Amino acid sequence: MFIFRTTMIQHLLILLLAAAGVMPAYAFLYEKGGTCLPSLSLPASARMRALGDAGAADVRDGAYASVNPAGIAAIDDDLIFLEHMNYFMDMKSEYLSATLKYERLSVGVAVQYFDMGAAPLTRDGGDYDEANTFHAYDAAVMLTSKVTLGAFNVGATIKGLRESIWTQSMNGIACDLGATWRTPVQGLIAGAALMNAGYMSALAENRYPLSTLFRTGVVYSRPVNESVKSKLLLDMNMSADGYFTMPAGVELTYSALSFRAGYHFLHDTRSFSAGVGLVFGNLTIDYCYIRYLDDINAGSTPQFFALGIGI
């Protein structure tokens, strides 16, 4: 049974209200759907996806470059991290990162590739031909590092970007800045990150802004008993094109096995998600399943797999 003290609730409200005050000044810079490389706003973490996309304050795998660069501080050893995401239709995402830990420095390199699949090349649908299609993809190469300042971890990621649609392509560069704070309240950590702030070249003489995202959240950790540990996570996300969502999740860990569930509140298409994680020696395996609300995704079964290898 959880016992929430008044002081903890007060600290939590202060953190959330402060974040809510910052977000409106950043949002609604562009029309909804008017940004490019939307895949950059998706966390490349099966664990985080199972938690409803909550985890700005609690990155625990090699996907920190897609969530919060300060999360590299949570990686204890050198790590190779691989993830495969199977979206609806024939859309897929691949993510690979390598993390090196030194005495006073952590460095990570990551590559993300989002395959949007093949789409029909047609004017009005009347000339549709299965053989007449075009291909589109997003790609990013990322370099991450961090510094520790007392109870704060501050991280940054530099990204080289590319998007290709049929015969057209554009390149760009972006920066992520993030931080986590171990608050005075035992078990409570806060985190925030500004993701994908940068510049893209023109595509077919048109210039599109990046899918910039401000993500903030808290995680509260507490043992249920001597064998089971629990985490409650709550995030708030605001994108430059005006999308505001609130992911929330819960994680229960017993020995080497973790059970996760989450819900992405205020999201247009997402509903609940669930997943499991297993630690076996130096290996970490994560799985996630997501249920969608819209008709396009409802018939699909998006699944996410991740493998972490400590070295």
Rank of each mutant, 00 (worst) to 15 (best):
I3F: 15
T6Y: 11
T7S: 04
T7N: 05
L16S: 02
A19T: 06
A19R: 04
A20F: 15
V22T: 11
M23K: 12
L29M: 14
T35G: 15
S41I: 14
R49M: 05
G52Q: 07
D53V: 00
G55W: 04
D58Y: 02
D61E: 08
A70T: 12
I72C: 02
M85K: 04
Y87I: 03
F88Y: 11
F88C: 07
Y95A: 03
T99H: 10
T99K: 03
L100K: 11
Y102L: 03
G108Q: 12
Y113I: 08
F114N: 13
P120D: 04
L121E: 02
Y128E: 06
D129H: 07
A139P: 06
A139L: 00
L143T: 14
S145L: 08
L149T: 13
F152D: 14
K159A: 10
S164I: 11
D176W: 05
P184F: 06
G187Y: 08
G191W: 04
G198K: 05
A202I: 02
L203N: 00
E205C: 09
R207F: 08
P209K: 05
G217V: 02
S221D: 05
R222L: 03
S230E: 00
D241G: 05
F244T: 07
Y254S: 06
A256C: 04
L257W: 08
H267F: 00
R270G: 02
S271L: 08
L278M: 12
L283N: 06
L283A: 13
I290N: 02
A298P: 02
Q303K: 07
F304M: 09
A306Y: 00
L307A: 06
G308L: 14
I311M: 08
